[in-house]
Design a protein around this nucleic acid. Structure first.
Length: 441
RNA sequence: CGGGGCAUAGCGCAGUCCGGUAGCGCAUCUGCUUUGGGAGCAGAGGGUCGCAGGUUCAAAUCCUGCUGCCCCGACCA
């Protein structure tokens, strides 16, 4: 992409409403724009990141056996009256009336709807287990939205729903999602720690929050330092093996880890002082097992092997991609701007032509742009007629992992510069060496 | 939902107390000079001063009402 033909409205100054670093950087880097309180437009750079995050989530959900579909944002109130939550949910739910004066709502979550879809088509235990998910915009009318997309009213959510015949099967489904989440966050360059959680209005008795550590995190968390060394399960982990999944779950929940809401001073005191980690955390995922909370009232039943009807055992599993975009920045930035982990970077490489209009640098950049693109790398080519300083500042701000810097002086000696955004390390190389180095990765 | 604050050009702000017809920096546009860490000079454009009433010869400024946004707290899968 040529920057001269892209839409990257970067801000030199920080809008005054932005308090936390991710919000400031997202606004300054031209990723998002607030349209009203807690509601944001995703501009091209932000949209690219969001898409990459969603694709990683999608790959890992699919790998774990979940199946994607897409449910609407607007739901009929009738479904929620069935489960009893229409009155329970309170003012957080955005209620709408259509032209026929029917009560509708903008979905804050989809348990009711997925249960309706399930019961409409599934009759036999032979169709189980089943795990359905979608990635869709949700709306919760927070009293006080804040921190940009970290706590917005409209937000993107991946929500998966598992259906099993019995509690053991549901437990396995839960463990599969648990493992998929560990892989998902690790792929985004995040250290996510599962912590036992309160089940809240979703209900049920087994629930974990996935918390990433960031100094600017919203809540205090306590965990054993062993977590920092744990490795996420490999790509080929046996998702269908119940024992393997349970072993993985046991390993990852064998040490103390809790958010302040669930903190247990007695258990914490039992952890040797040298092994305690107290830090700030951001919740990026939350999983629940809630049994028949919805399948009972909504009559989502299947015939078991014995011919008797039984309400299915359910669980739900959420990840907030829009919040993740901000959380990744909280966990990865410096004074100059964002530092994107490779997997979610909006572009892999920023190519800066320090003297646009110069025959030599123009030609060298055009050649590099073509070669890197042909090798499958996403390149943002800064071909604007701007001064070098402005280009460096822009590239640092938007945080692309690699910067390829082409200036007339270096080029006269056959050299260009390759800079790693994270380490700050710079190398002076020939254009071919740069292409080789970047494409060899 | 309680408490506080703000609203003036795309962004950041001054001007409001003490009424006199709107300004600064950055950004934008034009020209020249510049070109390895947010350039210099010269010129230009851009504002129903959040909205609606009121007071006044005259309102960004004073009064009343409304709306929006932000912050603290409570709240928050």
């Amino acid at each position: 992409m040529r920057l001269s033909r892209y839409f990257l409205p970067i801000l030199r100054e920080t809008p005054k409403e932005a308090e936390i670093v991710s919000h400031r950087l997202m606004l300054r880097a031209g990723m998002i724009r607030q349209e009203t309180a807690g509601i944001y437009a995703w501009l091209p750079l932000g949209h690219r990141v969001l898409t990459k995050i969603c694709n990683i989530i999608r790959e890992e959900q699919n790998r774990a056996g979940a199946v994607e579909l897409l449910m609407p944002t607007i739901q009929p109130a009738e479904l929620w009256r069935e489960s009893g939550r229409y009155d329970d949910y309170g003012k957080e739910m955005l209620r709408i009336e259509d032209r026929h004066e029917r009560d509708m709502l903008y979905g804050p979550t989809n348990e009711e709807m997925i249960t309706e879809i399930f019961r409409g088509s599934v009759r036999s235990y032979k169709d189980l287990p089943l795990n359905l998910y979608h990635i869709q915009w949700k709306f919760r009318d927070e009293v006080r939205p804040r921190f940009g997309v970290m706590r917005s009213r409209e937000f993107l959510m991946k929500d998966a729903y598992s259906f099993d015949l019995d509690a053991e099967g549901a437990r396995h489904s839960y463990n599969q999602m648990f493992a998929a989440y560990l892989r998902t966050f690790a792929r985004m360059g995040l250290k996510a720690i599962p912590m036992r959680a309160d089940t809240g209005p979703i209900g049920g008795n087994l629930s974990h929050e996935f918390i990433i550590l960031a100094t600017t995190g919203e809540s205090e968390v306590y965990c054993h330092k062993d977590f920092l060394g744990y490795e996420a399960p490999p790509q080929d982990v046996a998702f269908d093996d119940r024992a393997v999944m349970q072993g993985l779950f046991d390993h990852w929940t064998g040490r103390y880890a809790a958010t302040s809401e669930m903190h247990d001073e007695a258990a914490w005191a039992a952890v040797p002082e040298a092994e305690r980690v107290t830090a700030r955390g951001i919740e990026v995922g939350h999983i629940f097992y809630f049994g028949t909370k919805y399948s009972d009232p909504m009559k989502a039943v299947v015939n078991g092997p014995d011919g008797k009807e039984v309400a299915v055992q359910m669980g739900s599993y959420g990840i907030g991609p829009s919040r993740l975009a901000a959380a990744i920045i909280e966990a990865s930035h410096d004074e100059s701007g964002i530092i994107w982990p490779d997997a979610v970077a909006p572009f892999h490489v920023g190519l800066a032509n320090l003297k646009a209009g110069d025959v030599a640098t123009d030609a060298a950049c055009a050649d590099l742009y073509a070669k890197l693109g042909k090798a499958g790398l996403d390149v943002l080519y800064d071909d604007r007629d701007e001064r070098p300083g402005a280009k460096f500042a822009t590239l640092d701000l938007i945080g692309l992992p690699w910067q390829v810097i082409v200036g007339p002086k270096g080029l006269a000696e056959g050299k260009i510069e390759l800079k790693n955004r994270r380490s700050g390390e710079r190398e002076s190389l020939s254009p071919d060496e740069v292409v080789n180095k970047l494409t060899a990765r």
